[in-house]
Simulated scan of single mutants.
Amino acid sequence: MSKSSRPISLIPKEYVSVTDLTPITALGAQTARQETFGALTITENADLGIASLALRKGQEAPTVFGLTLPDVGKISGTDGTSAFWTSAGQWMIMGAGQGTSDFAKTVKDEAPACSVTEQTDGFAAFELTSDAETLERLMTKLVNLPASAFSAGCAARTGLEHMTVFLVRPSETTLTVIGMRTFADALWHALSTAAKRLET
């Protein structure tokens, strides 16, 4: 092939190789963000795997990872795995440390007759840790729910500013706020701004 007949590449050299891609968190960094406001700490949980599970017509709720899938407004959990109710016959399953794995496949293996969909990349999760009073003071400033709706062992879906979020309360001292990944920055801003105001 002569020099004049060589094909011309329309792709700039800097875009040809994709071997140097670096994963980032929902907040756009290589490491998860964490910030402390007095007695309250907010941590981005970039390692959480999430999958939705839905029953098919006439199907009984299965046991997943040894969990009895919870009733309306409740959560259940074992070591590293938990579930919370989202709608009739539907749950979110969460796996600690499963953020980069094919978590949906793992869940599907547990419940092969159910409809399972990967949700990890669609959501951002922020863990709030503090004493129960501080957590409840913070959230009552942000959501229009009584504290009993997100007490220990409960989960709720609600609005927070312009966003829809899940509030998941596995214990008295921990509350996980889960929102759409596209709103991760706005959700962090809302949580951190309210947390700063608690200190004043």
Results as ranks from 00 to 15, higher is better:
Thr200Ile: 09
Val143Asp: 03
Ile8Asp: 08
Glu127Phe: 00
Thr25Lys: 02
Ser130Asn: 00
Arg197Phe: 06
Ser130Phe: 02
Ala113Thr: 10
Lys196Arg: 15
Arg56Gly: 13
Lys57Met: 15
Phe65Asp: 01
Ser52Phe: 10
Asp102Pro: 01
Gly179Leu: 06
Val72Lys: 13
Ala184Thr: 00
Gly179Ile: 06
Ser148Lys: 15
Asp20Met: 14
Ala152Tyr: 08
Thr106Ile: 06
Trp85Leu: 08
Ala29Lys: 10
Thr41Tyr: 09
Met180Glu: 15
Gly159Cys: 06
Ser171Glu: 05
Met163Trp: 02
Asp47Glu: 15
His162Asp: 11
Ser4His: 13
Thr63Val: 12
Gln90Ala: 14
Ser101His: 08
Ala152Asn: 09
Leu198Arg: 02
Gly95Gln: 00
Gly179Phe: 02
Arg157Gly: 13
Ser2Asn: 14
Ala186Ile: 05
Pro170Leu: 01
Val116Ala: 07
Ser76Arg: 07
Ala125His: 14
Ile50Lys: 05
Ala113Gly: 10
Ala125Tyr: 08
Phe183Lys: 07
Glu14Leu: 08
Phe37Gln: 03
Leu175Cys: 00
Gly153Leu: 09
Leu187Met: 08
Lys74Gln: 12
Glu161Phe: 06
Leu198Thr: 11
Ile178Asp: 00
Pro7Trp: 14
Pro23Gly: 11
Ala51Met: 06
Ile50Met: 07
Ala26Leu: 02
Gly95Ala: 01
Met92Gly: 01
Phe37Lys: 01
Thr68Leu: 14
Ile75Met: 13
Lys57Pro: 14
Arg56Leu: 14
Ala54Gln: 12
Ser76Trp: 03
Thr164Trp: 15
Glu60Gly: 09
Ser76His: 02
Ile75Leu: 06
Arg169Asn: 09
Thr182Glu: 07
Thr134Phe: 03
Thr158His: 13
Thr106His: 01
Ser148Tyr: 10
Pro146Glu: 09
Ser4Leu: 15
Ala54Cys: 12
Thr117Gln: 11
Ala190His: 02
Thr63His: 11
Glu199Phe: 05
Ala149Asn: 14
Glu172Lys: 08
Pro7Met: 15
Pro112Gln: 07
Ile50Leu: 09
Gly38Thr: 01
Thr193Arg: 12
Leu160His: 04
His162Ser: 14
Ser171Asp: 12
Ala113Arg: 13
Tyr15Val: 04
Glu133Pro: 08
Phe183Ser: 10
Phe84Thr: 06
Pro62Gln: 06
Thr182Pro: 02
His189Tyr: 14
Ile8Trp: 07
Ser9Val: 07
Gly179Val: 08
Ser9Pro: 10
Thr193His: 11
Gly95Asn: 05
Asp109Thr: 13
Asp109Tyr: 04
Ile24Thr: 15
Ala190Gly: 06
Thr43Tyr: 05
Pro7Ala: 11
Ala125Leu: 10
Arg33Met: 10
Ser148Glu: 14
Gln30Lys: 12
Thr200Ala: 10
Ala155Phe: 05
Thr43Pro: 01
Ser2Pro: 14
Gly159Phe: 02
Ala96Arg: 07
Ser130Pro: 04
Arg33Pro: 07
Ala113Val: 02
Glu44Gly: 03
Ala195Asp: 08
Leu175Pro: 04
Asp185Glu: 13
Gly179Thr: 00
Pro112Gly: 09
Glu14Gly: 10
Trp188Val: 00
Lys141His: 13
Ala96Lys: 12
Leu160Ser: 03
Ser115Thr: 13
Gln119Ser: 08
Leu142His: 04
Gly97Tyr: 08
Val116Trp: 01
